[in-house]
């Protein structure tokens, strides 16, 4: 039995928030102070991938994206995908990377992985900003009423990454194989989501299962809102349900095992 007089609830919450901000700032500053190109990396990663995909899927294999240039089509999906992939990877490694702190000082452990994710949200914002000049260059419509759902889509995506990331970060402390599993899983999900191809090319037979991958509905919704100016389809509802389930389970699992982190030496 352990008892302790805890600070008042509001004070704890304020401190939690301050800690999260400070730790996020630490990650962001350290990341961009260490690299020569700094914050530009947030743009380079999705842009380079979009260019590679554009070359391959325009000149080598023809993917029909209607009247939308392929590079726009893929970039709008690669920006949230990069957030998913980098956010999840950073979260999974975050506790292990800070073991030295975790084994010595007590603080709510979920701050470390959540800050890792928040730091990637900044990258997401920067990469998304580049989308604006791209749309203008290709003379596509930029503003639409559908844009008001954009924060909701982001929220659903963050819930998904946070849930998976919290569970992954905790498991990575116990089993170091998780990082290999993660690489494999991300590879499969990249092809299981409508990133390089439109949903219309998904075979009829697989369609009933396709949106069980929450990222499929999320990516499709970003594309609908940002590229076509239409509201997301019902698939987003399923994605939202699955994402918040993932968050609940991931958080529950993380809190259940966090006290064992310091016992692993």
């Amino acid at each position: 039995m352990i008892t302790g007089k805890l600070p008042t609830r509001t004070k704890t919450q304020t401190h939690f928030f301050e800690f999260l901000v400070v730790w996020t700032a630490r990650i962001v500053r350290a990341r961009y102070q260490q690299s020569a190109l700094g914050i530009l990396w947030a743009l380079i990663q999705p842009s380079a991938t979009a260019i590679i995909f554009s070359v391959v899927f325009t000149f080598f294999v023809d993917v029909n994206t209607g009247d939308v240039p392929y590079i726009l089509f893929s970039y709008v999906a690669l920006v949230p995908w990069t957030l998913f992939s980098n956010g999840l990877t950073d979260m999974v490694n975050s506790i292990v990377e800070n073991m030295n702190l975790v084994t010595k000082i007590y603080f709510p452990r979920e701050i470390i992985p959540l800050a890792a994710l928040l730091a990637r949200v900044l990258d997401f914002g920067i990469a998304l900003a580049l989308f604006v000049p791209m749309v203008l260059y290709f003379q596509r419509p930029l503003l639409s009423p559908a844009l008001i759902v954009l924060p909701l889509i982001l929220l659903i995506q963050l819930a998904l990454v946070a849930g998976l990331g919290l569970a992954g970060a905790a498991m990575n402390v116990f089993f170091r194989d998780i990082k290999y599993l993660l690489v494999l899983g991300l590879q499969i999900l990249l092809y299981a989501s409508p990133i390089i191809y439109p949903v219309s090319s998904v075979p009829e037979k697989l369609m009933p299962y396709y949106f069980l991958n929450p990222m499929a509905g999320i990516v499709e919704s970003y594309r609908a809102v940002l590229l076509y100016g239409t509201f997301p389809g019902p698939a987003l509802g399923l994605s939202a349900f699955l994402s918040f389930c993932a968050l609940a389970i991931g958080y529950w699992f993380f809190k259940r095992v966090e006290f064992q982190f310091a016992d692993l030496i």
Partner: peptide
């Protein structure tokens, strides 16, 4: 005492703000 780990058995009551100077410059 600093709540980094949990006891296997026994009781531990801490009544007050506790700061641990365990690693200088942690983080």
């Amino acid at each position: 005492l600093s709540r980094v780990t949990k006891p296997t058995s026994g009781e531990l009551h801490v009544n007050g703000r506790l700061s641990a100077l365990i690693e200088l410059g942690a983080g």
